[in-house]
Design a protein around this nucleic acid. Structure first.
Lengths: 195, 195
DNA sequence: AGGGACTGTGTACGGTCGTACACAGTGCTG
DNA sequence: CAGCACTGTGTACGACCGTACACAGTCCCT
């Protein structure tokens, strides 16, 4: 068939994989489903990606850019004096209100990483990326806690089906931030102590 | 086969399912694997549980009792004046340090609920149960945030493989608690705002 | 321009899955 | 004690999966 020399082929397979996972979950991802979605032959997926894990890693890594781009975009969180809690709560709301598949995909990644060590670095990338952006506005430890709280809040929304409560999120982000530094510094929470 | 009248059969299948999920993940759960683990015939699992979801719900519900029992046990969190943050951080550490499979199972099923709506009520039960216990020591909204933060911290530990930092957890729990009431009351965070 | 090496494709295979269903074994009822 | 209704079991079926592999089409080198 006259389908050779398709430099975007690999990227299109990744996009298809993201759509498949977004629609059917990781459990629904197979060489066949992604091949059908991308409209490429079955052999093409196995050719470009030696294993499903490899494809999954590529797909999730690409999906990871979603929220990081959102909160990093144009420095919408910028300004040390800006109300980080308010902005973060609003951006989270936008993220949740936007393409639901993006958010679900993100946490689907978490689920998969629990069992597939190969995926953990990718999951860590997401945490690190968001933490780093937030670190511009508070100390790194507080940033990490914000990410943890953000994850927990998003999970609660996704699992209960409740609507996202922006005021609640803002309040809780604010509490975590109040205990931390208002600008980037280190060791505010004395991590590393045995407790 | 003289295997009739086995009243524990159902419970033993659930236990086997928990072991299977703990060992191989939800992806490794099938009628056959759980039947083999429980040493019962294949038909027995389909007889006691019409679908895998049903079995999964039963397993998740049973696994749910783990942490709730831990923090509710003997009122170890008791005393409104007690340092809730310290105790919660310690209990979380105990939970994470104990049977790792228990924690992994908890979040595996938790995250599985993202894709299986049938599991969501059970996941909500977990959140509600822990929230309610914590509500004895702070207002309900703060309790919910504590659960969210707890979930996020546990996920970070499980996903990064880092050791649990009890001092960090105590610090962040404390920040969330500081903004809330020291005893049970309502509306501290004004949930239900414009959201 | 022609041949060789390589990229890309279609098919076929072994294995596992969920499920359905016919059948065997037991306890209750009269 | 006999028959019946029901619980529990084993097997068989169709579908889907990952993977391997033989084959076709295209580019590069001489």
């Amino acid at each position: 068939m006259t389908r050779r020399y398709d430099p975007d082929r690999r990227g299109r397979i990744i996009d298809a994989a993201i759509r498949v996972v977004g629609r059917s979950g990781i459990a629904g991802l197979s060489h066949r489903t992604v091949a059908a979605e991308a409209d490429v032959p079955l052999g093409s997926t196995t050719y470009h990606f030696a294993s499903l894990d490899e494809l999954l890693i590529a797909a999730l890594r690409q999906a990871n850019e979603g929220f990081a781009a959102l909160i990093g975009d144009g420095g919408r969180l910028a300004g040390p004096g800006a109300d980080v809690a308010t902005t973060l709560a609003r951006l989270t709301g936008e993220w949740l209100a936007g393409e639901r598949t993006g958010v679900e995909l993100e946490y689907e990644l978490y689920l998969a990483a629990l069992r597939r060590p190969a995926l953990r670095p990718v999951a860590a990338e997401w945490t690190d990326a968001v933490s780093e952006i937030l670190s511009a506005h508070t100390d790194p430890t507080t940033a990490r806690a914000l990410v943890a709280l953000l994850d927990g809040i998003c999970l609660q929304v996704l699992l209960t089906g409740d609507t996202y409560d922006e005021a609640y999120a803002r309040e809780m982000f604010g509490r975590v931030l109040l205990g931390g530094g208002s600008g980037p510094r280190e060791g505010a929470a004395a991590p590393g102590g045995d407790g």
